[in-house]
């Protein structure tokens, strides 16, 4: 067996094909190949509450990133319109389309940033992993288009993310992507400043009474939802917020001011949508075969 032709056919083609059938085709036949994969449009039918929450928190960036269903108002007109104003409403179909787009964009970033080299996406039946993260993984839960290419990973510098969805708030994730070591001191996860955009925000200084009681500085303030591209837009938003306040809250309106700030951009929003999706989908169990 040491002639050119026999090496090519027996070793080069034969051994390769044998192994391919046993360790790729055969597992495919009894898993993914036996049942069609669920595509993204179907996955997105179940819009997560966290995804809707993203819109409440970062309305401007959200509408710009997922314009489905916002054409009732132009972007210019949207400024200053409160996030839960009915005119901003989206039909359920528009929500689903936005969600599908966000999941896909988020998955793409997850791949290109190399998250999967530090985080795994499957839970093993050993090492108390089911206590740490949740039920042991079954192949059916990965039989969907967001797992093609599959993102199981082979390394756990950071925790497994199979069931990450809903575990933490959007705010936590946003702060974490901005600077992981701020929420997890000492974390070696890289920071992702490019998930954020610079802009102008309306902020509210806290009530002096509360400041006194809690011992916080009187200058402490927090941001209202929305990060605007220009100072003028933020001022307009500030004005319309003031206008909507009743006279009894005049002091309150004095505490509002405009300042530069940061919010998630398109990439950040879709990454959060993806992270908050993980583990929230399970296929319908097969109907019992008739006996």
């Amino acid at each position: 067996m040491d002639r050119f032709g026999s090496i090519i056919t027996a070793a080069g083609l034969g051994c390769f094909a044998f192994a391919f059938v046993l360790s790729s085709l055969y597992p495919w036949m009894i898993t993914g190949g036996s049942k069609p994969e669920t595509n993204i449009a179907v996955l997105a039918q179940d819009v997560s509450p966290e995804f809707r929450d993203l819109k409440a928190r970062w309305p401007v960036a959200f509408d710009a990133a997922y314009p489905q269903g916002v054409d009732a108002l132009t972007m210019q007109q949207l400024v200053g319109v409160s996030p839960d104003d009915a005119r901003r409403g989206r039909s359920e179909a528009a929500w689903e389309a936005s969600y599908a787009q966000a999941l896909r964009d988020g998955r793409d970033s997850y791949i290109s940033e190399g998250c999967w080299h530090c985080h795994s996406q499957y839970v093993r039946p050993v090492s108390n992993e089911d206590q740490r993260w949740g039920p042991v993984s079954v192949w059916e839960q990965d039989n969907n288009s967001l797992q093609r290419p599959m993102l199981w990973g082979t390394r756990r510098v950071g925790p497994d993310l199979t069931y990450e969805g809903g575990l933490r708030s959007n705010d936590w994730h946003a702060a974490h992507f901005w600077r992981p070591s701020e929420v997890s001191p000492g974390s070696v996860m890289p920071r992702y400043p490019w998930f954020f955009r610079e802009g102008w925000q309306v902020r509210r200084r806290i009530d002096p009474e509360i400041a006194e009681r809690t011992g916080l500085s009187g200058d402490t303030s927090y941001a209202l939802p929305g990060v605007y591209d220009s100072q003028a837009e933020a001022e307009a938003a500030l004005q319309s917020t003031r206008d909507s306040l009743p006279n009894s809250l005049a002091a309150e309106s004095e505490r509002l001011f405009v300042e530069q700030g940061k919010g998630l951009n398109h990439r950040g929003l879709s990454m959060l949508a993806y992270i908050q999706w993980l583990g929230t989908w399970m296929p319908e169990p097969e109907p019992e075969a008739e006996s």
Binding site: L13, S24, R148, M150
Partner: peptide, 28 residues
Amino acid sequence: IWLILTYVMGNTLPEWSMPGASGAATVG
């Protein structure tokens, strides 16, 4: 010969046709 076969297999199947567990088997 193996280089060509391996490269074609690994760069097409998990990306375009095999999701989840079957993709993982092929990536491995």
